[in-house]
């Protein structure tokens, strides 16, 4: 599993380098700040991956008390949120309830991260920036009318059920704990698959580029959330999906730039 993790990380680094080169060469950086923010976000993610790989190789037995790669992750979240803000030029539809629910989801997720790792400060900082990104993604999806009303309700129910299952893993004894854990993993990947089921056709039929970008970053955020709540194989799978989402987000951003 450790070898697979190294290989996947090295592949992700290679993909990010290619994406950054593509970004710098193909985007114009003249019309909007979105490509600049997106390129910085990719660089931030690349730095974070490089730091993690270098740390694992140089200090395999030493625990990170507070690592610079967490700043890289915070930077990625904030810069991706800024990318969406620049694409939608700050014009978002009313989404009060969705934002409240998203805020609660982010706060509960951060609480679970703290319960798992015991790292208060970094989990609160990462949770705040991740929550901000989630709120901007939700507002963008609402503005681009990506989901219908019942789909929003379904997504809310899935997020609530996920938190309940994660909470149960702390409270229940074995073997119920393992079953709750399995259900949580299944739910996380089911929502991710549903996100891709919406994203791929939108990209293929060249729908509204803003909607494509919002959907791609929703899938990316969900993949990252899945990574933070998983271990071993599931972590690697979610990590693979996050790299795919970044590539799809770049395609959407290029179409948005080319749009009249």
């Amino acid at each position: 599993m450790e070898l697979a993790s190294y290989i996947l990380n090295a592949l992700a680094i290679a993909v990010y380098v290619i994406l950054i080169v593509l970004c710098v060469r193909s985007l114009s950086f003249r019309r909007s700040m979105a490509p600049v923010f997106f390129t910085f976000a990719l660089v931030s993610n690349l730095m974070s991956l490089l730091y993690w790989l270098a740390y694992d190789l140089l200090r395999p037995d030493a625990r990170m008390p507070f690592a610079a790669n967490e700043f890289g992750e915070i930077g990625t979240f904030l810069l991706l949120a800024s990318t969406l803000n620049a694409v939608f030029r700050g014009r978002f539809a009313q989404a009060r309830w969705e934002i409240v629910c998203t805020g609660l989801f982010a706060a509960a997720s951060a609480a679970f991260w703290i319960a798992w790792s015991g790292e208060w400060l970094q989990d609160i900082l990462v949770g705040l920036s991740f929550g901000y990104l989630l709120c901007v993604v939700v507002r963008s999806m609402k503005q681009a009318a990506v989901f219908s009303r019942w789909e929003w309700r379904l997504l809310g129910a899935a997020a609530g059920l996920l938190l309940l299952l994660q909470g149960l893993t702390f409270a229940l004894p074995e073997p119920w704990k393992g079953r709750a854990d399995f259900c949580a993993y299944a739910l996380m990947f089911l929502v991710l698959a549903w996100g891709f089921r919406r994203l791929i056709p939108a990209l293929l039929r060249r729908a509204d580029p803003c909607a494509q970008l919002a959907l791609a970053l929703f899938c990316w955020s969900w993949a990252v959330s899945t990574m933070y709540m998983s271990a071993d194989f599931c972590y690697l799978a979610a990590s693979f999906f996050s790299v795919c989402c970044t590539t799809l987000a770049l395609i959407a951003l290029r179409r948005e730039e080319a749009a009249p």
Partner: peptide, 27 residues
Amino acid sequence: RLQVLSLAGFVGAVSVSMTFHGLYNLL
């Protein structure tokens, strides 16, 4: 130039420089 000096973008850019510096110090 594009009149969008956003706080989130600025903090994000500072985070990139911190990660870059941290990676250098680690190596």
